[in-house]
């Protein structure tokens, strides 16, 4: 968008600020035991005050209550959202965003205050207004705007039972910025896997053996010196002739560290990595697994094996002997 177009767009969206989303919306169902039980099962709520009327009567609550986090659920639109959502003011606002390329939507924050516990029979009505729209932001998801709605929930007596600020990001999905390259064939991306090594002339033989479950150590055929990581020439005698031996993966911890942050997709944290002194004399950097990292000591004997660590990757891993 040109600066003028952006200005016109922002005027359009800011006209929504302060407007009511629609008439107050009373929940289709009053607070009831069945929906509470359904919720409690999924969320793992273990309190009898949610699901056991007899028990609940004897607690300080004096009877069943709904899990507080359910508050928003009582007045949700339900199944029509999937097929034919109501064209309320918020939807109209989103349509303006969509028409300008801000098609992505993501709930980013919710903050709810609860003024009293809800009990079966209570009737929840939501009063929602478009409260604020942020300046344009560059987010990790893409360029976008945060929209905050403020919802006040009242009961059958018109008294406030809770208040919620809900913030969504409407953004231009990063992919649509390079639309020319959007025809990817793989329509089922999978869970991220580890970042693997690029393979070239000097290292692909090593990684290929690793794929097959073997850890090799390069050996100069002229002076027999072992070397790792592999290099095309021997630093001792300058020979370019070499073969390799297979490591037994017996070794000890020469040094190690445990990574906590940042968390890179495809890896599990905490992630312990060691420099392993192999019995053959060379060193190898690899994960140390199945041990509390606080108990690892330099000099500890370890034994390695080559294992499949994710859907795509074979790697050496070491365990204490």
């Amino acid at each position: 968008m040109t600066p003028e177009e952006t200005k016109a767009f922002e005027e359009k969206i800011h006209a929504f600020v302060g407007r009511e989303n629609g008439p107050p919306k009373r929940g289709n169902d009053d607070v009831n035991e069945a929906m509470i039980r359904h919720w409690a099962e999924v969320m793992g709520d273990e309190l009898g005050t949610y699901t056991d009327a007899e028990y609940a009567a004897g607690t300080g609550k004096g009877g069943l209550i709904a899990p507080p986090a359910m508050l928003q659920a009582w007045s949700m639109e339900g199944y029509p959202m999937a097929e034919n959502p109501a064209q309320d003011i918020q939807r109209q606002l989103h349509n303006v965003f969509d028409a300008h390329g801000f098609t992505g939507v993501l709930g980013t924050n919710t903050s709810t205050e609860f003024f009293r516990d809800l009990k079966p029979g209570d009737q929840v009505t939501a009063h929602c207004i478009i409260d604020t729209i942020s300046e344009q932001k560059a987010t990790g998801r893409g360029i976008g705007y945060f929209i905050e709605t403020l919802t006040t929930y009242t009961d059958q007596n018109g008294e406030e039972v809770g208040k919620q600020v809900f913030r969504v990001l409407k953004f231009i999905p990063a992919d649509s910025n390079d639309a020319a390259d959007s025809s990817t064939e793989d329509d089922s991306p999978s869970v991220p896997t580890r970042i693997t090594s690029p393979r070239g002339h000097d290292n692909s033989w090593w990684w290929k053996a690793c794929d097959e479950g073997k850890i090799l150590i390069q050996r100069c055929t002229s002076c027999q010196t072992l070397r790792h990581p592999p290099r095309p020439m021997c630093g001792e005698c300058q020979s370019i002739e070499w073969d390799s031996i297979e490591s037994t993966l017996d070794g000890e911890v020469y040094s190690f560290t445990t990574l906590h942050y940042p968390k890179i997709p495809g890896y599990q944290y905490p992630n312990t990595v060691g420099v392993i002194q192999l019995s053959e004399g060379t060193r190898l950097v690899a994960n140390i697994v199945d041990i509390d990292y606080e108990t690892i000591k330099i000099g500890m004997k370890v034994k390695g094996s080559v294992e499949q660590v994710d859907e795509k990757t074979m790697l050496p891993v070491f365990r204490p002997e």
Binding site: A56, P68, S111, T112, F114
Partner: peptide, 10 residues
């Protein structure tokens, strides 16, 4: 059971 949730912000 006898605690009362006043606010959840995430």
């Amino acid at each position: 059971p006898d605690a009362t949730v006043k606010k959840i912000a995430l």
